[in-house]
Simulated assay, not measured.
Amino acid sequence: MTDTPNTSARLDELEMRVVHQDQTIEDLNAAITAQWKLIERLERRIAQLGERVADSERSTGDAAPVDRPPPHY
Rank of each mutant, 00 (worst) to 15 (best):
M1L: 07
M1F: 06
T2E: 13
T2Y: 10
D3E: 07
D3I: 03
T4F: 03
T4G: 11
T4M: 08
N6F: 13
N6M: 04
S8G: 04
A9G: 03
R10T: 11
R10W: 04
L11I: 11
D12H: 06
D12P: 00
D12F: 06
D12E: 09
D12K: 11
D12R: 11
D12L: 11
E13N: 15
L14I: 14
E15W: 05
E15A: 10
M16Q: 15
R17Y: 12
H20T: 03
H20F: 06
H20M: 11
Q21Y: 14
Q21V: 14
D22P: 00
D22Q: 00
D22H: 02
Q23M: 02
T24Y: 13
T24C: 04
I25F: 10
I25M: 14
I25N: 02
E26H: 06
E26N: 01
E26M: 01
D27Q: 08
D27Y: 02
L28Q: 02
L28P: 00
L28Y: 03
L28I: 01
L28G: 01
N29Y: 02
N29L: 02
N29C: 01
N29Q: 12
A30C: 09
A30D: 14
A30F: 10
A30Y: 10
A31N: 03
A31E: 11
I32V: 13
I32P: 01
T33V: 00
A34C: 03
A34R: 05
A34Q: 06
Q35C: 05
W36I: 05
W36V: 06
W36L: 07
K37A: 09
K37I: 11
I39F: 04
E40N: 12
E40P: 04
E40A: 13
R41K: 15
L42E: 10
L42F: 08
E43Y: 04
E43A: 10
R44G: 05
R45T: 05
R45G: 00
I46W: 01
I46D: 03
I46T: 09
A47N: 14
A47E: 12
Q48F: 12
Q48E: 14
Q48C: 07
L49E: 09
L49H: 02
G50T: 02
G50R: 03
G50K: 00
E51S: 12
E51L: 09
R52I: 02
R52P: 00
V53I: 13
V53T: 08
V53F: 08
A54T: 04
A54M: 08
D55W: 07
S56C: 08
S56K: 08
S56F: 07
E57Q: 12
R58H: 09
R58L: 09
S59H: 08
S59F: 03
S59C: 05
T60F: 10
T60A: 09
G61D: 05
G61M: 06
A63S: 09
A63Q: 14
P65R: 01
P65H: 00
V66Y: 09
V66T: 13
V66Q: 12
V66K: 14
D67V: 04
R68S: 09
P69R: 15
P70G: 13
P70D: 12
P70F: 05
P71K: 09
P71I: 10
H72R: 02
H72I: 00
Y73R: 07
